[in-house]
Design a protein around this nucleic acid. Structure first.
Lengths: 138, 138
DNA sequence: GATGATAATGATAAATCTTCTCATTATCAT
DNA sequence: ATGATAATGAGAAGATTTATCATTATCATC
C-alpha cells in the first residue's frame, strides 16, 4: 500500500503523489519527469509539470524512488525496491536492463578504501547495442 | 604537438582550438565548457562560449577528449590519453580521482555478453567523501 | 463532521546548460 | 595573393529543471 510509504516519508497523502507513485509501480521501468507528466495527462489526470518534478525529488529524498542519470541529459526515476542494481542501456532503442554483480560491488568497496574515500553511492552504466536485429547492427 | 592532433581529426588549425586543447593538456583535470571559457577569458583570450561548446564536442567526436557526465548536471571534459579509466568523485569538495580495475572491466564484458549486448562504452563513477578532514566527516 | 493551521498544488517565470543561426572572419590549397 | 570553404562569436532559442506565489487541499483537533 503506497499511501503508507508516502506517510512514512513525512509527506501528506495527496492525489498527485499517489498517482505518481502508482504509475511508477505499475510501469516498473525508468521514467523521466516529462514521461510521468505526459502519461498522467493521457490518463486524464490533471497535474502540473512542476508538481511532478517536485514530488519525484521528494520521493528520491525519502528513498521511495531512485534517480538515474544516463547520457540522455534528463534524469529517469524508478521505484526503489531496496535491491541496488546497475544498468545496461541500448544506445539504439533505449532499452534498459538491470544487473547486479557481487564481484564488481566488492571491488568498488576495495578501490574506495584504497583511495581514502568513504563510499556513499555509485553509478555504473554499460552502454551498447542490444540483441534486437534493428539494434545489433552498427 | 597538439596541432597535428587537430589536423588528424580533419579540423582546421585555429586559435580557439589550439587554446582549448593546450588548456586541457596543461590543466590535466576535468573541466566543464564553462570552466574552459572562464579560464581563457581570464587569460585574456577572446573566445565565445558557443565556440567552446562546439570545439569540445568536435574534440570528443575526434577522440581527442573524453566527456564525463557526473551528477553535477554539466558535462566535464578531459584529454583522452588512450588509457580508459573510471572515476571517484568527492561529494563535498568535488575532487576527482581516477582508477582502473581489471577485474571490474572483465566482469562488465561478461555481463554485457550474458545480456546479449555488444558493449560500446561504460561509465562507472563512485561517489563518496574523500579523506580530507573537512570532507571525511559525513 | 466542521474548523483552521499548515502544507501542497499548478501556472508561470526564471535559472541553467547547451545548441542553433547567421553575418563576419580566418584558414589553407592552389 | 586569391578564393572556396570552414570557423568564429554574439545572440537567440531550445531543453531540462527549479523558484515564486496565489489558490486549494490535507489532516489534527475540536
Amino acid at each position: 500500500m503506497e499511501n503508507q510509504d508516502i506517510k512514512k516519508a513525512g509527506l501528506k497523502i495527496t492525489l498527485p503523489r499517489v498517482k505518481i507513485l502508482t504509475l511508477l509501480e505499475k510501469h516498473g521501468g525508468h521514467l523521466s519527469a516529462e514521461d510521468v507528466y505526459k502519461i498522467l495527462l493521457e490518463e486524464g489526470e490533471e497535474i502540473g509539470l512542476a508538481t511532478v518534478y517536485r514530488v519525484l525529488t521528494q520521493f528520491e529524498s525519502a528513498g521511495l524512488v531512485v534517480r538515474q542519470n544516463f547520457e540522455s541529459g534528463q534524469s529517469v526515476f524508478e521505484i526503489d525496491n531496496g535491491t541496488h542494481h546497475d544498468h545496461l542501456v541500448c544506445l539504439k532503442c533505449g532499452k534498459v536492463e538491470e544487473f547486479l554483480d557481487a564481484t564488481i560491488e566488492k571491488r568498488q568497496e576495495a578501490i574506495a578504501r584504497q583511495h581514502g574515500f568513504s563510499i556513499k553511492d555509485h553509478a555504473l552504466v554499460i552502454y551498447g547495442y542490444c540483441n534486437k536485429p534493428e539494434c545489433s547492427a552498427e
